[in-house]
Amino acid sequence: MEFCPTCGNMLQYELPHMGRPSRFFCPTCPYVCHIETKVKIKKKQRLVKKELEPVITEDDMKNASHTDATCPRCGHGRAAYVQFQTRSADEPATTFYTCLNETCRNKWRDD
């Protein structure tokens, strides 16, 4: 949406007609803004993917409690777990597990 710099009303769009380019015009005052048919890209900027910090770090899992939970990937019977309240207070906490098998280290969660 574009607005008239003179009176502040919303500009209306008019299609090109008989050699005249398309334009925005103000219905209440004589303001007219012609639209260029070609768009010029002045600068290309590469987006850099930001590195995400994990919510649960390896140090958190080293200090976590252990339980008899079966890993869905390797079937190991022990896992470290941490619980967080990820939803509203009347919902149960979410449990995040890490397999204690040194070759697996699979992470999963139980809602």
Rank of each mutant, 00 (worst) to 15 (best):
S22Y: 02
D60E: 11
S65D: 14
R105V: 07
P27R: 06
H66K: 13
L15S: 10
T98S: 09
G19H: 05
D110A: 11
N63W: 01
C99R: 01
N9V: 14
Q45M: 10
A89N: 11
Q45N: 11
Q12Y: 10
C26M: 04
P16E: 02
T70L: 04
E14S: 12
M18E: 15
I41K: 09
M61W: 05
C26W: 02
F24Y: 13
C26Y: 01
H76D: 01
T86E: 03
T103G: 09
S65R: 12
C99F: 00
E91W: 14
R46P: 02
M18P: 05
R20A: 08
E102A: 10
C33Q: 15
G8M: 02
R109F: 14
M61L: 11
C99Y: 00
G19V: 00
T6F: 14
H66C: 14
P92I: 00
C74F: 01
T67G: 13
N63T: 08
C29Y: 06
T57N: 02
E36Q: 11
E51V: 13
Q83E: 14
T94Y: 01
L52V: 07
M61G: 06
C104T: 00
P21H: 05
T67M: 09
L15V: 12
S65Y: 12
H34C: 10
Y31T: 01
C71G: 03
F84R: 15
A80V: 01
L100V: 05
H66N: 13
Q85W: 06
E58Y: 03
A93H: 09
I41T: 13
I56W: 02
S88F: 10
M61D: 04
C33K: 15
K49I: 11
A69C: 01
P54T: 02
Q12W: 11
Q83V: 12
R105K: 15
W108Y: 06
Q83H: 06
N101S: 07
P72S: 05
E58D: 15
T6E: 15
G75L: 07
E36W: 08
P27C: 00
K49Y: 08
C29V: 04
T94F: 03
